[in-house]
Amino acid sequence: MSALAAELWVPFTYGYMLKAMWVSALVGGVCAFLSAYLMLKGWSLMGDALGHSIVPGVAAAYLIGAPFAVGAFFAGILASLAMNFVKQKSRLREDAVIGLVFTALFALGVLMASIWPTSVNIQTIVLGNILAIADEDVVQVAIIAAVSLAIMAFLWKDLMVTFFDESHARSIGLDTTFLRIVFFTVLSACTVAALQTVGACLVIAMVVTPGATAYLLTDRFGWLVVISIALGTVTSFVGAYISYFLDGATGGVIVSLQTLLFLAAFWLAPRHGVLAARRRRRLTLGGAAP
């Protein structure tokens, strides 16, 4: 084996790197699955809001020694209740309400972490630290991702109909309220999982970018899901791998990769890309000329 190949193989020889790569891939894949729906419904910022809102929950969980997923889950519920409450009792628009609630909770989280500095390293929550993930956290993340994937695999068509045309979904006997609750529960759980890999700030990229990229590449929802999952999984795996050579910042590398692929699709997509649109326009103009 040449020296270069040996060098490139090094990450696979470390247990912590292997763990980081496959956990990232799993989380990236399931978040990408959800991104296909979020992006279409204009709910992209919901992922961001959730990611920030659960920080105090995670901090509190570390403080009392509970699993971080439990803390995050309660913080997520608190966030959605608070948003609903403020929206119903005021005339504020939804974006303002989301902004208010998630920054308030995020600030609370930062505050908690600075008051009890030993309880949790806030940087871990904000930026994620997949390279140093503890084994019990790996188990949590793996269970969340596997269960979420299974639920989505069974319900993806029902959720598609519900989000596309809720009246029709009801007319074929689907319980649309239940399906929405399931979707947002899965989303909250996956946001918690993604927090470990890329951190609160970059969670939004995981639940937006793959779907947005895939949207430019296909007109079929089924393919959109497949492309999105492939993008999410591969970028997360490769991103974790590359981060070995860049000394950390896994989240940054993963999201940068996803953004590069988005830009490529944005320019080069066969039908919905910028260049394709230009080509079409030129053809139309050429065809119209005498």
Binding site: L40, M160, V161, F164, D165, H168, I172, Y215, T218, D219, R220, F221, W223, L224
Partner: peptide, 12 residues
């Protein structure tokens, strides 16, 4: 929404 005509009808 990324869905084709025949897929909408199939939803029926």
């Amino acid at each position: 929404f990324p869905v084709l005509v025949e897929q909408v009808v199939m939803m029926g």
